[in-house]
């Protein structure tokens, strides 16, 4: 085969691979929408499940997912942004900072089921929080911490040095400079990380099954109580074959949430790109 034919064929193969990758996404989302849409109704979104989810809706699961993901972000954001500020504003590049980054990357690689085991042994059992929103939310917070942390670090690092120097030159203290110059300028990047974390927290199943989730169609009264959650509910409906239609409906709600988060992230990025 001559060199040019080979090149033409290989370029075709490259296009085909990209097409295959995209088609996975289109097929999966298309399939969930197609199968899930018939289940969606006002009642499905606003009512509690009946008969283990065979009938009724998923309202408590939606609320529970919002609680869990919300708590996770509430805990992970200050820690993540604080850690990022420490790395960027309060320390010079050293073995110690590399160690911190290595720690975040390592935590990011821990499988979610291990977070589940850890959450159970540490929070539910050792700390005595029980199966509760608190245990689940904290477990998820630990899991998304690296995402929030590293995204915030990148955003803060992107603040130009001369802007900070301009502030110092006016006699501002370090803390004033961080508050009035660094954080406002990096806020969109930080928010991006928070939304990415929110999306991950909302979709994770394994960590909350051991720490927070039950199949109880009652809205939780406090964070010390267990709750339903979309991904766990979806897993139960599917694995026990309770109702495939409702499983797809739940999946559709979950995927719409993820799509909205992704859309928000790309909107923020686009807006930022325009401003530059």
């Amino acid at each position: 085969m001559d060199r040019y034919t080979k090149q033409t064929i290989m370029k075709g193969v490259l296009w085909a691979s990209a097409l295959i990758t995209i088609s996975f996404l289109v097929i999966i989302i298309g399939f969930i929408v197609y199968k899930g849409a018939p289940a969606i109704s006002w009642e499905f979104l606003t009512e509690a499940p009946r008969r283990s989810g065979r009938l009724g809706g998923i309202f408590p699961a939606i609320v529970g997912t919002i609680y869990l993901a919300g708590l996770a972000v509430l805990v992970a954001t200050p820690i993540g942004v604080g850690g990022a500020l420490f790395l960027t504003e309060f320390s010079k590049e050293s073995k110690f900072t590399r160690f911190i980054r290595f720690g975040a990357d390592t935590l990011n690689g821990v499988p979610s089921i291990i977070f589940g085991l850890f959450g159970f042994a540490f929070l539910v059992y050792y700390m005595g929080f029980g199966i509760s929103i608190l245990s689940g939310g904290l477990t998820l917070a630990f899991m998304i911490l690296p995402t929030v942390f590293r995204t915030a670090e990148e955003a803060i690092r992107a603040v130009p040095r001369w802007d900070k120097e301009g502030s110092y030159a006016l006699g501002a203290t370090k803390l004033q400079t961080i508050w009035h110059v660094v954080l406002p300028q990096s806020i969109s990047g930080i928010v991006t990380g928070i939304i990415l974390g929110l999306g991950r927290a909302a979709g994770e199943t394994a960590p909350i099954i051991f720490t927070a989730a039950i199949l109880n169609p009652v809205l939780p009264g406090s964070i010390m109580q267990p709750t339903m959650a979309l991904p766990a509910h979806l897993y139960t409906l599917t694995s026990e074959g309770i109702s495939m239609q409702n499983a797809f409906g739940t999946a559709l709600v979950l995927i719409v949430m993820v799509l909205v988060f992704n859309l928000l992230v790309s909107l923020i990025r686009k807006k930022k790109a325009l401003r530059r």
């Binding site: 990209a18 995209i22 979806l234």
Partner: peptide, 28 residues
């Protein structure tokens, strides 16, 4: 232009919750 479509699509693929992959895998 193609890249501007493919890159976000890949990010989205990474964002789909794993349990949904499971559901899709089971049924399809």
């Amino acid at each position: 232009r193609v890249r501007e479509v493919v890159k976000p699509a890949i990010e989205l693929l990474a964002g789909i919750p794993s349990v949904i992959y499971g559901l899709f895998g089971l049924i399809v």
